[in-house]
Nucleic acid binder design. Sequence first.
DNA 1: CGCGCGCTTGACTAACTTCAAAGATGGTGG
DNA 2: CCACCATCTTTGAAGTTAGTCAAGCGCGCG
Lengths: 230, 230
Amino acid sequence: MLATVIRDQEIPTRRCDPAAKAPDANGDLAAFDDIGTVVSCRRDQALFCEGGEARAFFKVLSGTVRSYRSLGGGRRHISEFLLPGDYVGLALGDIHRATVEAVSDARLMRYSRAAIDRLVQRQPQLGKRLLGVIRSELAMAQSQMLLLGRMTAAERLACFLLMMADRYGNTDCVSLPMTRTDIADHLGLTTETVSRLFSQFQCQGVIRLKAAHEVVLKSRSELQALAEAA
Amino acid sequence: MLATVIRDQEIPTRRCDPAAKAPDANGDLAAFDDIGTVVSCRRDQALFCEGGEARAFFKVLSGTVRSYRSLGGGRRHISEFLLPGDYVGLALGDIHRATVEAVSDARLMRYSRAAIDRLVQRQPQLGKRLLGVIRSELAMAQSQMLLLGRMTAAERLACFLLMMADRYGNTDCVSLPMTRTDIADHLGLTTETVSRLFSQFQCQGVIRLKAAHEVVLKSRSELQALAEAA
DNA sequence: CGCGCGCTTGACTAACTTCAAAGATGGTGG
DNA sequence: CCACCATCTTTGAAGTTAGTCAAGCGCGCG
């Protein structure tokens, strides 16, 4: 896979969730950085696994990361892709409820739970920001439920593309480091359906595939229409 | 509808989420009760609507409540049903991201945000509990995503029944105050499919329908098997 | 250069939805 | 208290979407 082609610079932008613009969520948790250590992670390598003890959480510095849960029969659901600036595992209790792996080679900042707890104890307003981050994650999860439960395949992919464009600083050229299978597992579809939809969207002229993992959004408005087809 | 038949006593049990047993989540937010006021709500009446300003949150005292988001074309997804003891709208920022309505006549405790904020300021450990409640909601949302994205119709209903039994104190007789359409909108299915599955489960002997809204779980283990069919 | 993995495309299938209609159920008003 | 009506539920038959199976292609990597 073209891991090296993928944008690998550091992008300290925060997650931009259109649905949830809680003021708290925008406040960065920069205060944590002092107590973090940088870790590297090769493609497909796991940061932690479902069921494991949660000793730390992370912030993505570069690369892309996926968080998923598994089901019998080799079924998997990727609850989210994490881009630079996103926090991983913040919402965890003592046990990890998802497996987190690198989609492309990645670098992350690691924060130990104990150190964070101490810091939050001393600075209560940090707790409020933490709450904001988790809230926006919950809002995102609720949007995803609506998508999975009630949208057609085409609407799902259109939503996904718009969301990714938004998160990548709202450019019209979006790089998708994850495989078609990853996208399918995120949208509750199959690889084949996702692939067919990419082709279909390209035929319709709403996107252009510069490469399998490099999409140009040619018509935002049409894509928006596809995403919300009543 | 049989709103009066439905259990309407006060059940101060907390939500029991099998996936997320964060110790914080179990700690009640009883400290809030002093500053709450009781409100009543008739069947199908809305507590608040998507997009509205969030001035308060609630705890269900009696009855059942649904929280949903809407989509074009009359599509709807009920993110959760709230039973006595559950908190509603805790995870909210300043704007409601879902509409909340009574499934059956209900009574709720209403807490103003301002009052809560003051209380949390004075007692920081309350903030931690709040965090725990939101965390368990996030965990539940992630389970629901797995269900919506990757489970078959039968698995979804089996999961739902087991979950409801669990939340109703783990008895084998579960009352389902919501309509088939409500259940369908929660599981990402249609009314007809849900109805057919109830019939099918009854034929298979894993449940018995005492009435449309009164289910007896005859074989937990078989239901469990249906819920996790690999 | 060739191998392997991931992507694409086609034909067929299955699961679930849609459309339609009959059958319960409970609430209301006489 | 009973009968009627609206609403919800159940069931059947047909239709559609997305899944499955299968094969070929293309790209990047060794």
